[in-house]
Simulated assay, not measured.
Amino acid sequence: MNLLKNLIKTCGVAAFIFFPLSKIFAQPTKVLRVKNGQDATKFIPAKDRFEYPDFQFGRLNYTNGNYAVSKLNYCYLLGEVMFINAKGDTLAIADNNQVGYADIGNSRFYPFPENGFVEVIEDCGLMLLTKKVQYQRDGIEKKGAYQNSSEIGSVYNASTFTDINGRTTILPASNTILLKPATTYLLMDINHRFSKANKTSLLKIFSKNKNVIEKYLDKQNIDYNNEEDLKKAVRFCSEL
């Protein structure tokens, strides 16, 4: 319990029994709008912020072999695994470097060195295909005549907006920031080293069968931004 207190922003996570639950929530596709000065985590509905409609019983597995069981969810705004403590507060893990992985329902999430967590979508033994879904800033709406809005690619005048990652943008008070979901696919090797899921990484990881794999990838015309294409590619590589 002392370890848990050091890893989270507030102590007191209650103990629960872990029951695997199937995922029933699809990843986000729509663009969200947050007005200047609004707190995105409070303004945007929970159904758009989290992967699961409700927090699921899950388990945080630490690198030292210990674990903690709590209600968990993945937050698309922060790119983080979050939990509910005994007081009912929704919190992010303070130091994910001490977390080996998190199990939520039937899904597994690994900490990503730069920030947040990635979700495993294909386990190939020598490597894991993972994805990170997170909202990114995708332009600004500036109110024009008759209260209409038009997307613009740059920022004008003075006023500030602090986004979900703590970055401050200068923009007019009447503007609205656009948040668009972005998916990044990454390969994780057995040493927890990450590389972008592309042809170069696959050929490096499966170098023993480089020539065969290269011919296959070219022939299949793999789209490295398509989840099903990537799953097909990594399955082929791992079965050689």
Rank of each mutant, 00 (worst) to 15 (best):
F194W: 06
E119M: 01
E141M: 06
N96S: 09
Y67Q: 01
Y52R: 13
M82F: 11
T41K: 12
I140Q: 06
L230Q: 01
L230F: 00
D123E: 11
A197D: 00
D103Q: 08
A145W: 13
P172C: 12
F18S: 12
D48N: 02
F19P: 08
K232M: 14
A94G: 07
R235H: 15
I164M: 14
S195C: 14
I121T: 05
S149M: 09
L4E: 15
V212Y: 10
N96Y: 10
D223E: 06
F83T: 11
N191C: 15
G125P: 06
Y62H: 03
K208M: 11
T168N: 02
F25Q: 13
S154W: 02
S195F: 11
P181H: 04
F57G: 07
T184Y: 11
P113Y: 06
Q220I: 11
A40H: 03
I164H: 12
T162L: 03
F112N: 05
E227Q: 07
S195T: 15
K142L: 12
G105S: 04
Y76F: 09
I121V: 04
G65V: 02
L203E: 00
Q27C: 06
L3G: 12
A68R: 00
D189P: 08
G139P: 03
N175H: 06
A92N: 08
N165Q: 08
K142F: 05
E214M: 07
A14Y: 05
Q136N: 14
E151F: 15
P172E: 15
I17V: 11
N165R: 06
N61Y: 09
